[in-house]
Design a protein around this nucleic acid. Structure first.
Lengths: 196, 196
DNA sequence: CGACTTTTTCCTGTTACGGTAAATAACGAG
DNA sequence: CTCGTTATTTACCGTAACAGGAAAAAGTCG
């Protein structure tokens, strides 16, 4: 279980509904962990079955009733035990890197387009991180432990996006510098192969 | 399919057996993609069923016979089509970051130990990247397209490891600076709770 | 009325991850 | 000769994760 622990970690901040969690996994923690609402709800059921969280139904008027989940003491303990185990370094698993590994067997034009899209994407994310950093930590220091963690995360995220964006730029430049000697072959295999 | 494409990408370099692929996924491409030998073999079967690769049995004396897999033209085409689609930016999914997100609800001592282990781990990897870079690209330039891709990958890897290592150092420093005001609670829940 | 938001749930797949284990075939240690 | 090791492939099991399609219920907005 890993997504489950991420949810528990989110619930340490405050009780939340599945709906809120899904939104959280779209912003704050979602910067480095992706999960759609179905995954969240399924995981919440499991966590409830194990007694790590407790759902309290809140009757609403004008909206469907919601289930606010709170960490139980067992859940807190489970999270602490999980956090006390050594972490496993995750591997990147980025499609783009696989493409680069097979650079001489693929078409460069789509790759170039992809790199440009990614460049924009990572620049956007970088700007977003910086924006949040300036807003939440104008003087660059954190007060409590909770803030410290988030400050560190934001800084790591910002640097990471910056680095990947730089990488995309560099790759594009290298590709351009090489495009002279490269044979440009359009992607139309299987149509006129064998018979020329 | 993503692991399958990574395997196809590996096979563009030269034909390989499942055993060799498993080793490759432990070193070169394995720097950013992890897969054990069972995953590899299972994926190879699928790729063969789809006609993307072709196995040729090589009789060996002294060792069991091996199956050398070669990309078929269909496999090359499939790889090119896959590579022509826009890549999906992967999310990090690092346990360590989840822990930092819940920093005020976990025990700092194990976290500190974890950070130190990770620091060493990322430093090792960084040194490894640099070593390969110096060996394969002493002058920092690539000749062919194949080399270009690998040079870029190695550089990205080196920078990434450097950055994460720096991050670990920074986090450790921040934790130390904060440890004065923090209440240290040993992880022994559930034993003496409820009855003092 | 229809479209949209909020909130939860169910369904069916595929892909990935993890561990345990075995079969074949040789080599070397004890 | 048995035991362990390296090389090489394969099998089975279970769970976790990812993807997409759907629907229900209750209200608001246009």
């Amino acid at each position: 279980m890993a997504l489950g622990d991420a949810i528990l970690a989110c619930l340490t901040e405050r009780p939340m509904t599945g709906y809120e969690l899904a939104k959280t996994f779209d912003s704050s923690i979602g910067f480095f962990w992706k999960a759609d609402h179905q995954q969240i709800y399924r995981e919440l059921s499991k966590l409830r079955d194990r007694g790590y969280i407790q759902g309290r139904e809140v009757v609403q008027s004008g909206k469907p009733n919601k289930l606010v989940y709170t960490l139980t003491p067992e859940g807190r303990t489970a999270l602490r035990h999980w956090a006390a185990r050594p972490s496993t370094p995750a591997s990147t698993k980025d499609d783009l890197l696989v493409r680069l590994h097979a650079l001489d067997s693929i078409d460069i034009e789509p790759l170039r387009a992809d790199l440009m899209a990614r460049l924009e994407h990572h620049r956007d994310r970088h700007a977003n991180y910086e924006r949040i950093l300036k807003k939440r930590f104008p003087d660059g220091t954190a007060e409590g432990k909770l803030d410290l963690g988030n400050l560190l995360l934001l800084r790591l995220g910002a640097r990471h996006e910056q680095m990947v964006a730089d990488f995309c730029e560099e790759a594009l430049a290298a590709l351009s510098a090489m495009s002279g000697k490269a044979t440009v072959v359009p992607i139309e295999d299987g149509k006129r192969e064998g018979k020329g």
